Structures are given as structure tokens and as C-alpha cells.
Simulated scan of single mutants.
Amino acid sequence: MYKTMTSIVENQKETDVKKILVVEDERIIAINICSTLKQYGYNATYVSEANDAIEQIESEHFDLVLMDIMLNGPMDGIEIAGKIKRSKEIPVIYLTAYSDEATINRAKTTEPFGYLIKPFNSRDLYISVEMAIYKSQVQKHIRVVESRLAENQKWETIALVASGISHEINNPLTSILNLADLILLEAKKTSNSTLKEKAEKIAEESERIAKIVKNLVSYSQSTNSQWTYSNLVSILNDTRSFLHQYFLKEGIQCELEMGDVPHVYCQPQKIKQVLLNLIQDARLRVNTREDSIGRKISVSLSVVGEDGKEFVQIQIKDNGAEDLMMGISQMNSLDVTRSIIAEHKGNLIREEESSSWVFTLPIVKPV
């Protein structure tokens, strides 16, 4: 047993050490549990009262709480777990000497990650803790994936809706702009400065709406589903324009550095999808920054050579927090992105040091 525990501790990186709070009013039991957890490589601490438990959970980060159901004081472990569930995403395992149906049914309402019936041995404790932490991480990952898939579906819906309603929007917008012009002429004739300002504001906002619709329609239209020599600069500009309003709202500066690159033989709409997926990933990463100032995405185009062949290289760099749980590498969109690039005989890599996506497309000269 000692060798097993020692190897676990040695193989566990210091940065991966999980922090566990033990809530147990029997001091000897709490000390023994913490000692066992530390032997398995966890960072464990304990409290014996409900208020101390709530205070610790509010002020510190924990990966797991081991909660005794029967505690001395005004609140029992189930009530504390209920408070944790409402305010934090921390898995809870109940420790109890009571396994009656009424207690279990009441505890179920807090959706615990397991139960340990006292007395339990160190191996049972270790397995329960490992499984609870793993299950919690999987659930968080699933929520992230669902959120990202919903985001992708939103873009698809926006594109379809934009194409369908553009005519319905542009007709009344044209009328509004014409009326604004008439009001502006009337304001000039009567020297009404207030009316003039309002007419100009109406025209300005109408133009802005028209531009948004134009960008959406332009991006959603299938420019060419066939293979053709395409201008990556234009495709990239279209993608940035499509996301422009979101960048403005979120304070993101998106810079484009265009090198002298030739047209690429590709399917333009699929390359648009690749760029959208990767820039969306960069957008999510920069939005993890605590400060809203200085959020930046840089996209560069250049020509690179390898093994006597030339490629167009597209680098999408961001200055966001590196959170892989937020990253495209954790979701199904990466498979789609990679398959499109592979279909184009290109390559995609993630450079963590520079926080960049880099993909290449071969330069094929016309016959």
C-alpha cells in the first residue's frame, strides 16, 4: 500500500494537486481523512462547523467537498450542500453513518457525487474522490461543448435568417432613408437645427442597420461551392466584417496583417467556416481576460516554404487567457475544421506559447 501511494504522489504534478475540504465535526475522523488524502497527493483541510465551511467555500477554491451529513449546530451537511449547489460548482460527497431511506432521499435533492458510509477504508475514499473529481470535470466539459455547439448553431441560424429577411428589411430601410432626406431638406429650409440633427441621426442609424444586414447576407451566401482560385484577403475581410459588431461590443481589436499572397485553389465557403471557427475561438479566449482593455486578435497572411513547396500560412493569435476548457480543441468544431483543412491538403497546429492557431494551404498554380 505504501509503495502504491508513494508512486501516485510522485507521478502527480504539483500544479495538478486537487484541493479538498473536509467538513466533519469529529476531529479525529477529520484528521485521519485529511492525512489519508494527503498521502494520495491531495491538498486537504478540514472544518467542523457549518459557518466555517460556508466561509471557506466562499473565500477559497476547492475541487471537492467531503461533507458529513450529521453536524452539530443549526445546519446539517445537506443544508450546507444545498447552499454550495446554489452558489458554486463544487462536487460534494457525503460522509455518513446513517443510510436510512429518508436521509438518502433528502440528500438526493442536492445531487451529490457519491456517498461514503462510515466506517470506510482508504482505498474506498481514494476511488470515490477520484471518480467525483473526474465526473465533475466531464460535466463541466459537456456544458462547455453544449455552449459552443449552441454558439455555432446560432451563427448558422443568423446566416439563414439574414438571407431570408434581407429583402424585407431593406425595403422599409430605403423608405426610412428617403424620409430622412426629406426631413433634412425641410429642416434646412426652415433652419431648424434640432430637426436637422434628428434627421441625420435617423439616416446614420439606418445606414448602420443596412451595413449589418449586408455583412450578414454577404457572409451567409455561398459564394461558390465549387473549387476555384479565391482571394483569401477578401474571405478574411468578410469574416472580420461578419464579427465586427461583436468585436465593438466586447472591446476587441482585430488586426489584419496582409502579406502579398496569391489566390488559393479552394472551396471559399468552407475556408470561411474554418476562419470563423478559429477566430471565434480567439474571441472566446480574449473574453476570458478579467480586464476589458487591451483585448486583441491578430490575423496574418504570409507565404512559407517547406520541402520545396509553397504554402499560404494563416496565423490567428490572441492575447486571452489560455483556458483549454474554453478552447476549440475541446469541442467537435475542431474535427470539422481539421477535416476541411485536410480536404484542402493543408495543416493545422496549435502553438500554445504564442497562443495562436496556425494553418496552411498549398499554393497550386493554374495549369
Rank of each mutant, 00 (worst) to 15 (best):
T337Q: 00
S356C: 05
G305R: 10
A282D: 09
A321G: 03
K317F: 03
V299F: 01
K296E: 14
N237Y: 08
I271V: 11
Q267R: 11
Q267V: 15
H244N: 12
K296Q: 15
G327Y: 03
S302E: 06
K317L: 12
K272E: 08
F247H: 14
L276E: 05
E255S: 11
I235W: 02
D291N: 11
N224I: 06
D307Y: 12
S222Q: 13
L348D: 10
Y265H: 14
Q267N: 12
F247W: 04
E351A: 07
E322S: 14
S230F: 03
D307P: 03
R350C: 06
R338C: 11
S355P: 03
A342I: 07
E351V: 08
S354F: 03
N224F: 04
Y246H: 15
L284F: 10
E351R: 11
N347W: 08
S354P: 01
G320S: 05
I341M: 03
I340A: 02
I235R: 00
S225M: 11
R289D: 10
F247T: 10
L301N: 08
Q280T: 07
W227N: 13
S222A: 13
E306Q: 09
S329Y: 07
P262L: 08
R350D: 05
M331S: 15
K317E: 10
G305P: 07
S329H: 06
I279P: 03
E306T: 04
S354G: 05
Q280D: 13
R289S: 11
G320K: 03
Y265A: 10
D323F: 07
T337C: 10
S292A: 15
L275F: 02
I328R: 01
L301V: 02
L324S: 13
T288L: 12
M331R: 10
Y265D: 11
Q221H: 11
G294S: 07
L243R: 02
D281K: 05
Q245R: 02
E351M: 06
L275T: 00
S302H: 00
Q313E: 12
S329I: 14
L276D: 00
G346P: 04
S339N: 15
N231C: 10
E310T: 05
S355L: 12
N332G: 12
S300R: 06
M325Q: 13
V299E: 01
Q269V: 08
E290G: 05
